[in-house]
């Protein structure tokens, strides 16, 4: 028999996901000593930036008791519109302005989601499903459908700016771009909002019980509206980072990633019923998804099995706690 404390710890998704990551790394290092190097780590980190920012936004929505499938369309729309605008109006636009513009576009699109959800009170899945189509359709119809590789110079410049780059003594190359700082900033800001402001606590309260929140005098509409605007802004940031790191504004990219992002967030312990979710868990979920997407081959699984692996991880990671809860409920009668 396991002791209760172990059971409790293992019942938490964070611990489970962390354990799987550690196991993954051990197996990977055993089969390929080159796996556990600074190079791999910096590669994986870079691959986590866009996914990580999107996941944190998605987590916020889940905590508030909703779900958002439109954020990838928001991200790609904000990125592409910003690029087009910048190229048309001021190609030499400095990157801070480009970023601000994309975040602004993202927030605007998020506000559209917020309007339908907070003001009209429509179900979140249906609304975001609709806006996913609308945003993407609008983008490809009216803004453009060409891949642009001649980005504004400052956008390309940004992707070359490094916090640190070099070669370790053992000859491993590494590079940490400034976009990593964006992820860190998002983590800190979101953590602050969630844990240090009444707004953040209201988001948790909303996810716990909308009715109670309303009775307590929490402005439910305003809180919901904020959530979708904030998620939109984060998506705008993720979009422009994606464009600048990939050195291409591709209006067909990102969309289709939404289920992977939701998978990462759910693996990290956020619950669909709302009220639960941690940044640590979400980041661990992202790390696991990125590992599977990039390094599956290292532990001897062909990369064509990527989808199966992620799917199985979701089913195990969420099925185990669900099964335990079901058993506990049956015991209680």
């Amino acid at each position: 028999m396991m002791s209760d404390r172990w059971k409790e710890l293992l019942a938490r998704n964070e611990a489970l996901v962390a354990l799987v990551i550690v196991l993954f790394c051990i197996v990977a290092t055993l089969s390929d000593p080159n796996f556990f190097t600074v190079t791999t780590l910096s590669d994986l980190l870079r691959a986590s930036i866009v996914l990580g920012i999107l996941a944190i936004g998605c987590m916020l929505v889940l905590i508030s008791g909703g779900i958002d499938v439109s954020f990838t369309a928001v991200a790609v729309s904000a990125m592409y519109m910003t690029t087009k605008l910048s190229l048309a109006v001021w190609p030499d636009m400095p990157w801070p302005l480009i970023f601000a513009l994309s975040i602004g576009f993202g927030a605007l699109l998020g506000a559209i989601n917020g309007t339908f959800i907070a003001i009209f009170g429509l179900p979140t899945l249906i609304v975001t499903l609709g806006t996913l189509s609308v945003f993407r359709g609008f983008l490809l119809t009216f803004v453009g459908s060409d891949r642009i590789s001649a980005l504004p110079p400052d956008m390309r410049e940004f992707s070359r700016m490094m916090i640190a780059r070099g070669t370790t003594e053992s000859g491993d190359f590494y590079a940490l771009p400034w976009s990593l700082a964006a992820l860190l900033g998002v983590i800190l800001l979101t953590a602050f909002i969630l844990h240090k402001t009444m707004l953040g606590r209201s988001i948790f309260a909303l996810g716990g019980s909308v009715e109670s929140a309303r009775r307590l005098g929490i402005d439910v509409r305003r809180t919901q509206f904020f959530v979708y605007v904030y998620v939109g802004a984060l998506a705008g940031l993720a979009g422009i980072l994606h464009g600048s790191m990939g050195r291409m504004a591709d209006p067909f990219s990102l969309v289709g990633l939404e289920l992977s992002v939701i998978a990462a967030v759910v693996l990290g312990g956020a619950r669909l019923i709302g009220g639960y979710g941690t940044i640590t868990g979400t980041l661990l979920g992202v790390a696991l998804i990125v590992l599977v997407q990039n390094s599956l081959i290292v532990i001897g699984i062909p990369s064509t099995w990527q989808s199966v692996t992620i799917g199985a991880l979701i089913l195990l990671g969420t099925g185990l706690p669900a099964y335990q809860a079901k058993r506990a409920a049956a015991r209680a009668g």
Binding site: H195, K196, T197, M198, L199, G200, R201, F204, A205, G207, G208, S209, E211, S212, A213, R215, L216, G217, I218, G275, Y276
Partner: peptide
């Protein structure tokens, strides 16, 4: 009871009070 199942006892007790005091920053 109109409480929040996902929040701690302390927060459940203090929430309404913090709200009516018009706080923006939450202090645990």
């Amino acid at each position: 009871f109109s409480l929040f199942p996902n929040l701690s006892v302390a927060e459940n007790i203090a929430f309404a009070n913090e709200l009516t005091e018009g706080r923006r920053i939450y202090s645990r």
